[in-house]
């Protein structure tokens, strides 16, 4: 009984993640990008729930702070800045539709086949905890060089965005 509650929570969060993800890409009620962005928020929050179930507490917090807090706000800013009208129903090209379905189905089939063919030893009791302390220790000892490189990357991205957003590029 003690072990069944996280399992039920897993199924709840998994269904929420996949359902909201499906509504991001194809919403039958609205073609507005704002609706897609809102369902992306729900997908990301339920995925943070999955991270908590995997004992990755720090990453769950980072997921909500960075994605739901920063990235989605950026998306919404741009959508409202561009003042996009709800996408008119254009004629869907039938070849593109078939090609999309076939390629996605093929990739999914490859994934599922490899999942079935690989022996997974998930029976051993997992003991790793994604708290701030062990993660920070690893980040500042073994992974300190990539950490610094990422900070340079963020600086480069910031300079690039400022340059791209200038009114007249010359």
């Amino acid at each position: 009984m003690a072990n069944t509650f996280p399992d039920i929570l897993f199924y709840v969060f998994a269904v929420l993640t996949l359902g909201c993800g499906a509504l991001v890409i194809a919403n039958p009620f609205s073609r507005n990008p704002v609706t897609s962005a809102m369902f992306l928020v729900l997908t990301i929050i339920s995925m943070a729930g999955l991270f908590v179930l995997l004992h990755a507490f720090f990453l769950a917090a980072v997921q909500i702070l960075v994605y739901a807090g920063a990235v989605i706000v950026l998306f919404l800013f741009v959508i409202m800045l561009l003042d996009l009208k709800a996408e008119t129903m254009r004629r869907i090209k039938i070849y593109g539709f078939i090609a999309g379905i076939v390629s996605v189905g093929a990739i999914l089939a490859i994934f599922m086949k490899s999942l079935g063919a690989t022996p997974l030893n998930s029976d051993s009791a997992p003991a790793v905890e994604g708290n701030t302390e062990p993660l920070g220790k690893l980040l500042f000892t073994h992974y300190v060089v990539p950490f610094e490189v990422v900070s340079v990357l963020l600086l480069v991205a910031m300079v690039g965005v400022i340059l791209l957003s200038k009114k007249n590029l010359d």
């Binding site: 998994a14 993640t17 996949l18 993800g21 499906a22 991001v24 890409i25 194809a26 990008p33 897609s36 962005a37 992306l40 997908t43 999955l50 994605y67 990235v71 998306f75 741009v78 959508i79 561009l82 996009l84 996408e87 254009r90 593109g96 539709f97 090609a99 999309g100 379905i101 390629s103 996605v104 990739i107 999914l108 994934f111 599922m112 999942l115």
Partner: peptide, 28 residues
């Protein structure tokens, strides 16, 4: 779950025609 979500994102990148929604599918 991860595979299904990846397939959903790929489907969105291929199917949708709005640049911003394609970007959201990349995030997925």
């Amino acid at each position: 779950v991860s595979f299904l979500l990846f397939a959903l994102g790929l489907l969105g990148v291929i199917m949708r025609r709005n640049l911003l929604v394609i970007y959201m599918s990349l995030e997925l």
